[in-house]
Amino acid sequence: MRLGNGLGIRAVRTWLPPTVQTARDAVAHGRIDDEDVAAVGVTEVPVAEADSAPDMAVAAARAALTAAGWDGAGLGFTTHAWIHHQGHDFWSPAHYVAHRLGAARGVPLGIQVMCNGGGTALEAAAARLLADPATGRALVTTGDRFPDEGFDRWAGDYGVFYGDGATALLLHGRDDTVDEFTLLGVSSAAVSAAEGLHRGRDPFTPASRWISDRVDVKRTKKAFITDEGLDGFYRGVHAALRDIVTTALAEAGIETDDPRIRLLALPRVGVKVRRETYHPAVDGLTKARIVELGGRTGHLGAGDMTANLTAIGEQELLAPGEVAVAVSAGGGFGFTCAVVARPVRS
């Protein structure tokens, strides 16, 4: 997506619950073993004891709005993304978030495309601002919670530990005097032939969790790998990843060897998964250093990209004028790359 002179990320925030569970405790309780910990490389994950996923998204949004000095009533577009149960069976969490923030001017959009929801939501917000400048200000939120009743955050998937949390990003017309980042380019791609990794051999069912009491990602992945193998999956994914990175940079007017590209942030999945799925595609593609930012959160569902942007800002990993490349990915499979820069204040 060509963004012209770019859009402004006015503020980006991550909200995490104060309670954590450690990988060492999970090993002690027999939920995972030392080999799992080494393969994932995550030491702890945040765990929400009472807050719902949409309420965490509201908290993240309020933090972003406060940082920006904005009011929810001024938002012309809101979108909320998630991957897991939002607290009610037949309901729109996107409208709940908008309602709690007083964002009555725009029509909320809910996005459920697995873990690339945050990247897809960012692209949707950018498109809305470009198509209708009267929108003015847009909000992107994500929120996910993985309670034991429905999801085994430690052992329910291969190479991923899942943390609870939410993110929020405010997007508007570029203003280098106040923006935390400038969004210079966004590109997405899909490998829809790989949707079976999260379907496996399971039949279509009349209600959620019909086959097992808890979501079992390993069951569907094992069936898909047995039936289809992974060679085709890796070929498609690696091609898609290279395409979104090079396209987003090209649309931003930045060459892949530009020394301003300092960082490349990947989804907060395990070390082994990143090395097998992502590194073969992105290693050497730019001169950027690949940063590991999820060691104390694990995978935040739809929120990895936004959480990575928050961390880049909080840790001051970019100097003014420097560029970061953030990659989002999710089952389906879908991928989004955002190219952002730290503004140079005039």
Results as ranks from 00 to 15, higher is better:
246 T>P: 00
265 A>E: 04
5 N>A: 12
279 H>W: 09
52 S>Q: 03
175 D>K: 03
31 R>E: 14
312 I>A: 10
162 Y>G: 07
318 L>S: 07
236 G>H: 10
225 I>N: 00
240 A>K: 08
216 D>C: 09
282 V>Y: 08
284 G>A: 09
122 L>S: 11
238 H>E: 14
318 L>V: 02
87 G>I: 03
277 T>L: 15
234 Y>S: 03
111 I>L: 15
110 G>W: 09
346 S>R: 10
268 R>M: 14
134 A>L: 11
343 P>A: 05
123 E>F: 01
186 V>P: 00
244 I>F: 09
75 L>K: 03
335 F>I: 05
170 L>V: 11
50 A>Q: 13
318 L>Y: 10
112 Q>T: 11
137 R>M: 10
214 R>Q: 14
304 D>M: 06
84 H>V: 12
203 P>K: 09
265 A>R: 01
243 D>E: 15
208 S>K: 11
145 R>K: 15
4 G>E: 05
10 R>A: 05
179 D>L: 13
251 E>P: 02
134 A>E: 13
105 R>W: 02
189 A>M: 08
220 T>H: 07
227 D>F: 00
173 G>P: 12
206 P>H: 06
111 I>M: 13
95 H>G: 02
125 A>H: 02
125 A>R: 03
169 L>M: 15
147 P>G: 09
66 T>V: 09
241 L>Y: 01
217 V>G: 10
262 R>T: 12
68 A>T: 04
129 L>I: 11
61 A>E: 00
40 V>Y: 09
321 G>C: 12
109 L>V: 15
171 L>G: 04
24 R>M: 03
280 P>M: 05
69 G>S: 02
272 K>H: 14
124 A>Q: 10
174 R>G: 08
289 R>L: 08
56 M>T: 07
71 D>E: 13
214 R>C: 11
97 V>P: 02
263 L>K: 13
59 A>S: 13
103 A>W: 01
8 G>S: 12
321 G>W: 14
34 D>P: 00
306 T>A: 15
293 L>F: 02
243 D>T: 14
277 T>G: 01
159 G>K: 10
248 A>E: 04
67 A>I: 04
77 F>A: 07
74 G>F: 01
110 G>D: 13
109 L>A: 07
310 T>K: 00
263 L>W: 04
62 R>F: 01
193 A>M: 06
168 A>E: 05
195 E>R: 13
295 G>M: 11
240 A>D: 06
204 F>H: 14
16 L>D: 02
81 A>N: 08
332 G>F: 08
76 G>K: 05
69 G>P: 08
113 V>M: 12
312 I>E: 09
157 D>L: 06
263 L>G: 02
266 L>R: 03
68 A>Y: 07
151 F>V: 13
83 I>K: 08
265 A>L: 04
88 H>D: 12
46 P>F: 01
207 A>I: 08
208 S>A: 15
246 T>N: 01
90 F>E: 06
320 P>F: 11
217 V>I: 13
127 A>M: 11
16 L>P: 03
64 A>R: 07
2 R>L: 09
